[in-house]
Amino acid sequence: MNFQENEKLFSSKLFLYLSRILILYTFSTIFKSFDLSFIHGLRIFDFRGQMFSLFYVIFGLLAWEGATWLARTVERKTSARHTSGKLVFLCAALLLYGVLVAFLFGLFYSLTDILLFHRYEAWESFRRFSYNLNFGVFMFYLLILTFNGIIFYYSGWKEYQLQTERLMRENIQAQYDALRNQIDPHFFFNSLSVLTNLVYKSPDLSADYITQLAKTYRYILDKKFENLVPVQTELDFLDAYLFLIRIRHQQSIQFHTDISDKARTKGMIPPVTLQMLIENAIKHNRFSVLDPLTIHLKSEGNFLVVSNHIRPKAHPEISSGIGLENIRKRYALISNSNIEISQTDNLFIVKLPIITAA
């Protein structure tokens, strides 16, 4: 039986009480199996023995509920105290409660035994504070309490783990959302700057530019709440983006791709990642029609490799810090993979891990 598939059953009150009844009945059977000198002729499976077990189970269920209520009350009343102080109060309260439970069990059972079976052994044993009856019941109470405590604190520990994991995921998602939200104004304002200059030069080309800009920005809006997109989907978006780049820079930017079919169909990456790398290369390097900037995008094993020649500008733009750091953090938040950045004398290379779709 799969525990996760039947979690509701195992956590239901019906299962909880049935398991308690089974435990209490087992303890009562063990209790009767000892040589109990406080009562003679008490067999394990005869009618009188079963009455003993029935009384033990009913009384045990009430005592179990009482111990749970007492533990919660003490914990609530001592919430302001240090953990060690709370534990001392809790243990002392439960031990005193255990003494009371053992006393009441001996009293009520001995009276019941007199009324139903006219047997006085239990009463005599209770009246003399017999070791066998009172201490025996107290020890079994401690066993039940220990078992209950293990379950209670295990459940609390699991709940704490789930809560911690839930808060961690919410925190990660919040961080990821903040990183994604950086993309929108950054991309949009750069595009508007290009469009402002283009409107006065060519209205027809401006119309095409607006159409492609709408497609690219629609992609950003549609994928805003997605952590990963297929590589092919990102490449389709990149084609629209490169159209905007070619209008602005003509033949000054050359872009070459060599992506395997496997990477295209089964690979996934964070949205707008490739666009940010290309924009980063354009921003930090000089280029012209006679000396274009060449950007290569290829698949290499489990990576997408983006590389460009290094041609530092004489007056480099002030970096906003959005590009590479944004990509690095997004990968760190959604997977165990990290991007790899390397640089040679004339090449700047970024390797993006391809996340395989499940």
Rank of each mutant, 00 (worst) to 15 (best):
L235Y: 11
V350K: 01
S130K: 11
L244R: 00
E165A: 13
S84H: 11
S84K: 15
P312V: 08
P230R: 08
R218H: 13
Y154G: 09
V350N: 04
I210D: 01
L221Y: 12
T146K: 09
F47I: 09
K86G: 01
H186A: 10
F38S: 04
N280Q: 06
S84D: 05
R328H: 01
R328V: 02
T83P: 13
S33Q: 06
E234I: 15
F45T: 08
D184R: 15
I144M: 04
K8S: 07
K86P: 02
K13W: 09
L293E: 01
E165K: 15
S307W: 02
G323K: 08
V88A: 04
K215S: 08
T216V: 12
P312T: 10
L238T: 03
L42T: 00
M276C: 02
I21M: 15
D177H: 10
S260G: 03
L107C: 11
L95P: 06
L244N: 08
Y97M: 13
Q343R: 01
M51S: 09
P292L: 05
L347I: 05
F303C: 12
Y200F: 01
T78L: 05
G149K: 05
Q343I: 03
P185D: 06
L42W: 05
L297E: 02
M276T: 11
F105L: 08
F45C: 06
I210K: 00
N227Y: 13
L195A: 08
L198Y: 09
I172C: 04
R127Y: 10
Y141M: 04
Y241E: 07
R248G: 02
I220T: 13
S155Y: 11
H256L: 12
F15E: 01
L36C: 01
S28K: 05
L290M: 06
K224L: 10
H284W: 07
F31Q: 01
H40Y: 05
L324K: 00
D208W: 12
Y97Q: 15
H256P: 05
I282E: 02
R20S: 10
A332V: 09
I172L: 10
S191H: 08
K77P: 01
D291H: 14
Y331R: 10
Q343G: 02
W123H: 06
K313G: 00
Y141H: 08
E5D: 03
E325W: 14
R218W: 06
I339D: 06
E300Y: 12
L347W: 08
L116C: 14
F55A: 14
W123R: 13
H315W: 08
F45R: 04
R76G: 05
H309D: 00
N285F: 07
V289M: 12
Y153W: 14
K283E: 01
V101M: 11
L242H: 03
V99R: 04
P230H: 09
C91V: 15
A122C: 14
V350A: 01
S319P: 03
S202M: 02
R169I: 07
L228G: 11
Q232C: 14
S193C: 04
T26N: 05
F52M: 09
I253P: 09
P312K: 13
L162M: 10
Q173A: 13
W69H: 14
L277F: 03
V99E: 00
T83M: 12
E121R: 13
F31N: 04
E124W: 14
R119V: 07
G321V: 00
D113W: 09
R20Q: 13
Y153N: 11
Q251E: 09
A93Y: 12
S11C: 13
A102P: 05
L162P: 00
